[in-house]
Simulated assay, not measured.
Amino acid sequence: MAERVDHEERRRQIAEALLRIADTEGLQSASMRAVAAEAGVSLRLVQYYFATKEGLLLDAFARLGAQLQERMARRIEAAGSPPTPRGTVTAVLSSILPTDPEGRRITRTYTAYYTLVLNDPELIGRHGAAQPLLLEGFLAKQLAAAREAGEIPAGKDPQMVAAGLLAMVNGLGSSVLGGQRDGDQALAILRHHLAELFEDAGSDDR
């Protein structure tokens, strides 16, 4: 009897091979042939599951996003039950920072995709904004709940604060990868700014 093929497992195997190349060498090295070699399959099999390189890049990008979401979910769960707005915001933002091997791998791989967008904005750029916008909206809802509860100053705009916090952690991640600071120092900076935000509710909004 012929062996039954798990097609989703094959797609995952190939996409994760691309993500490993992106992490270690950058996406400029992720040719279909290189991905096939990394996955331990034939080039023809890669082309069977992904007719174009763009299709493979987008599939792998979606899987990378799912990995980050799983990391966030674990951090939110570890923050306590029921989750508080402050605990959730802290968990989400700290999960983006490259403070451990998993975080460094995810950040490096996202950086590889961002570099690709700069070189070929039509390829990934039109698909790359959806996840950050959803994340920004999620954080804004948490911050709005915190403002309603009096945990952050009433004058704070949740959408603007969420955008600023995400920009900050993305910048901190780049500074860790660049060797300017380590993960613990980046996390300390994030916690400092969150403490100022959440502990300033009783004072005038500045």
Score class of each variant (00 low, 15 high):
A15W: 11
G26M: 12
P121D: 04
G128L: 09
Q69T: 03
Q13S: 10
V161G: 00
G26L: 12
T52V: 09
P82Y: 06
R4M: 15
V117S: 02
Q180N: 02
L133S: 00
S174R: 11
G178L: 06
A60W: 07
V117Q: 06
L27Y: 07
V176W: 00
E54P: 08
A78Y: 13
E54Y: 08
D200W: 14
L64D: 02
M32D: 13
A91W: 09
S174F: 14
D157T: 01
R104C: 07
T109C: 00
A51E: 15
K53I: 00
R181T: 11
L116F: 05
D205K: 12
Y114C: 01
L194V: 02
P121Q: 06
L43W: 10
G150D: 05
L68M: 10
Q67G: 14
Q67K: 14
G150R: 01
R126N: 07
A167C: 07
I152G: 01
K156N: 03
R86I: 07
A30P: 09
E122T: 07
A36L: 10
E3R: 15
Q131A: 02
L58D: 01
K156S: 01
H127Q: 02
L177A: 01
L143N: 02
R71D: 06
R63I: 03
S203I: 04
F198H: 05
I124F: 09
R191C: 01
D205W: 09
Q185G: 00
A144G: 10
M1P: 15
L165N: 05
A66Y: 15
A36P: 10
E70K: 09
L190I: 06
I189K: 05
K141M: 02
